[in-house]
């Protein structure tokens, strides 16, 4: 019963991802850009529940984020890949939940999400070819990666703690 409740709490936190993305609190931004909330949730989930749960969660969250964003690029492929990759890493050992490593993984994940969006916008939108590879995309990517990497040790650690309590209570 306790395990079920903990999992529910974790899943409930997933519902906060689109809301936080929409709210975009201005006090948690770097150069006007907030953290990648989907990365902050998907990382601990994948580390805890494995590659397939991670990939599935990536798919679901990708669908939701595509729904609340403008057309032109999709989050789905990169989130599936990230969920799967982090799930595989999580299966290897327990040392992965160190704060520094969590921050690093979140930073890499955010860079990959940004890179995926950047590539899609540059190559699939005609007007993008106007301005030599969209330097604003690089700025977005770096700013989001840094703020996500800084927020990850706090947010991801808390979510992992939520899941670990479940494990210890069994």
């Amino acid at each position: 019963m306790v395990r079920f409740q903990r999992r529910q709490a974790f899943i409930f936190c997933a519902f906060l991802v689109p809301f936080m993305t929409l709210a975009a609190p201005s006090w948690l931004t770097l150069s006007g850009i907030g953290p990648s909330w989907v990365v902050l949730w998907l990382l601990p989930w994948s580390l805890e529940y494995g590659p397939f749960s991670g990939a599935l969660a990536g798919l679901y969250l990708g669908l939701v984020l595509d729904g609340i964003s403008l057309d032109g690029a999709t989050h789905i492929p990169v989130l599936i890949a990230l969920g799967f990759w982090w799930g595989c890493i999580g299966r290897r050992g327990p040392l992965i939940d160190r704060s520094l490593i969590l921050g690093l993984l979140a930073l890499i994940g955010s860079v990959l999400v940004g890179l995926s969006l950047w590539v899609q916008i540059v190559f699939f939108q005609e007007s993008a070819l106007l301005n030599a590879f969209y330097m604003w995309g690089l700025r977005n990517m770096l700013a989001q990666a840094i703020i996500t990497g800084l927020a990850a040790p706090v947010v991801c650690s808390w979510l992992l703690l939520l899941a670990r309590r479940r494990r210890s209570s069994l």
């Binding site: 403008l70 057309d71 916008i121 007007s127 993008a128 106007l130 301005n131 969209y134 604003w136």
Partner: peptide, 30 residues
């Protein structure tokens, strides 16, 4: 926004153009 494009014109010269969003605060007129 990237991909945004609307038709605009310059009332002084009466020339038409396309305003293209490129992701920055300042769109481009072509």
């Amino acid at each position: 926004a990237p991909g945004s494009r609307i038709g605009v014109w310059n009332p002084r010269t009466k020339r038409h153009g396309i305003l293209l969003g490129i992701g920055t605060n300042r769109p481009v007129i072509r």
